[in-house]
Design a protein around this nucleic acid. Structure first.
Lengths: 140, 140
DNA sequence: CTCCAGTAGTTGCATTTGCAATTAAAAAGT
DNA sequence: ACTTTTTAATTGCAAATGCAACTACTGGAG
């Protein structure tokens, strides 16, 4: 039990390295692929929502999104009802990238859960979801 | 299932933020507390081993250790058999810090696994250990 | 209508990080 | 014994990150 969060830390760091290497030729570095996936899946998401979803600093999120915009994977739109908001949309290029991102994610999942039964995989997913929720709202 | 690694990423980032805030008054920032824990637990560990254990870049590890040395939590020793190696040891100050680090870890675990049964906690730990091992040795 | 508080987005600055290259020592090969 | 390769540690450089502060907009209160 005492090693769960250590495993989590290691897994996160290791998968980040793998993902960044994988997508570097596509000009997606430093976890940009993670952001792009979220924008494709959540059309119209704002930066504040994205930062909260990923639990990253808003300024980091802004700069990463800015890079995705520069690389033409993402565009900012205007919310006519609220000039403050800048909903993010994936471009055609961004959407075309998504299947490769999805495949990568599946590969990571397959490699990481190799040797686990289907029941264990489902249970792991469920328990991690609970932990994520707990940690997201933790009062310490 | 498809959300396991996303949960892992979020948990890792969120706990890092919490830990860094917690230990900032002790001059332990940017995950330094994680490194210190490992050095206390593994007297004589080398930087290369530490970097591998944590799956961080060797230069990042070196610089973080350097900071722990400056803060007098860690010292470098000499390996008389191999001049290349610089085994790391926790100082008295570092060892005195360890109980607080442990308590923090227990608090995070308690908060994160709140609502899980004892069996689920044990299972989560076991499964995450397997995933960590898989990912650490992944060939993609 | 004006003012204030809250929210979304953004910037400045110092520090950290990761990749690639380098240095030093040990191990392996000839 | 000497040379080459491997391993551990380290450095240089460019880019990313996080905290704190700031700007702009919206909604609510007076």
């Amino acid at each position: 039990m005492s090693n769960s969060f250590r495993s989590i830390g290691l897994i996160a760091r290791a998968t980040a390295v793998i993902g960044n290497q994988r997508f570097q030729p596509d000009q997606l570095q430093h976890n940009q692929f993670i952001y792009l996936m979220r924008v494709v899946e959540n059309p119209g998401i704002t930066q504040t929502e994205l930062a909260a979803q990923l639990h990253v600093d808003p300024s980091t999120c802004l700069r990463t999104v800015r890079k995705l915009i520069t690389s033409e994977y993402v565009t900012r739109t205007v919310d006519d009802q609220d000039k403050k908001r800048r909903p993010l949309m994936a471009t055609q290029k961004g959407q075309a990238m998504y299947p490769a991102l999805e495949r990568y994610e599946q590969q990571i999942i397959a490699a990481g859960t190799s040797g686990l039964s289907a029941g264990e995989k489902a249970l792991l997913s469920e328990l991690l979801g609970k932990v994520a929720n707990n940690i997201k709202h933790a009062k310490l």
